[in-house]
Amino acid sequence: MRTSLATVPALPPLRLAQLEGQYAGAIGAKRAKTFVGLALVVGMIGFSAIFGEVDLVKFFSHITAFTSYIGRIFVLDSGPHSGQLTIADPVEWFWGIARWSRLIGETILIAYLGTFVGGIVAFFAAFLAARNLVQSQVVLFIVRRLLEFCRTVPEIAFAMIFVVAFGFGPLPGVLALAIHTTGALGKLFFEVVENADLKAMDGLTSTGATWVASVRFAVMPQVLSNFVSYALLRFEINVREGAIMGLVGAGGIGQDLIEAIRKFYYSDVSAILVLIVITVSVIDLATEALRSRLISREAGH
């Protein structure tokens, strides 16, 4: 060990000092940057704590209310097993299963229809927003800004406005999800189109095919499986969103959930939440399986 170390040539002291100086300088610069960053974060925390009305005393004196609330919703309020854990009497726990499953079904259909309509609009918008297919800067600008608007305004904000225009029920929920989906999918879709290989498009255009025909036969076959994959992903997100549409009266399971929370029907809260978590997981797994089949088929070709 010692001999091998001895063979390592020592740097001349002057050079060593120079290198050490450079090292200290680099580390110092990095530390200074980190320090400035931390100072900014601390400043933001201070600002946020004031505007967010953070009250740590209240938080820590009430934190047991959170854990006890979570515990409380898993205790039955009525029936022969009243006062016991919900798991003791699943029939009593899920007493409203018939109504709730209908509402869960409604939620899924709202999500499906919203994804379907939004996906179709996004499909057409994507080709008009793709830089490699459209020359007109005006068309690009308008379509892109519209898509941006659709995806920046939250679904539930659209839902609140639509509830006033269309009345209570699933319809405003479907439309709100459809508009947000148009914005979100439109962006993902046109990015896919912009990454498509345009050689086939050139070939078709050179034979005198119209723009629509060229897009149909040269671009669509390349992008369609990606589109479907993104749409399935969005469907999963929309099921989650669909579950809260009822909070503003736009249909689905949310209506019963907010009522149960506001009126302190404790065991109903947990029952509905369990149903939502199960539904979301099942949809999650199903779309995941479909997507991986789609992708493996793509890779096989």
């Binding site: 969103e241 907010i258 929370i261």
Partner: peptide
Amino acid sequence: VDKLIWALIWINVVGLGPF
């Protein structure tokens, strides 16, 4: 579980407001 649902639950703990 959506953020709005968590908000409803936390309101029971720290009351209405941004916290």
